[in-house]
Amino acid sequence: MTTSFVSYTTLLIGLFFWTWGTFPILNREHSIFYKLHTLTVSDSVGSLLIILGLLIRVPQYWPLLFVAAVSLALWNTISSYILGNISDRRL
């Protein structure tokens, strides 16, 4: 009962980060760099929190969730660096 409550709370916090980080990309006034920052909030932090919630719920499947978390962090960081580099060069 307690673990399920903690897991749902973590999932909802991650969902809040997703929502907050995804809404600024509809705004045309922000620059691409600010959008990359908020996409980092939603895609790295929120998704890692959601995976943490799943890990609390099903701890026996930790290997695949761990691989998913590591690949998520690595790919998101590298691709946001590359996109920042491209837009910085065209500035």
Partner: peptide, 8 residues
């Protein structure tokens, strides 16, 4: 950037 966010 948006497409990779959507796929994620």
């Amino acid at each position: 950037a948006y497409a990779s966010s959507f796929g994620n």
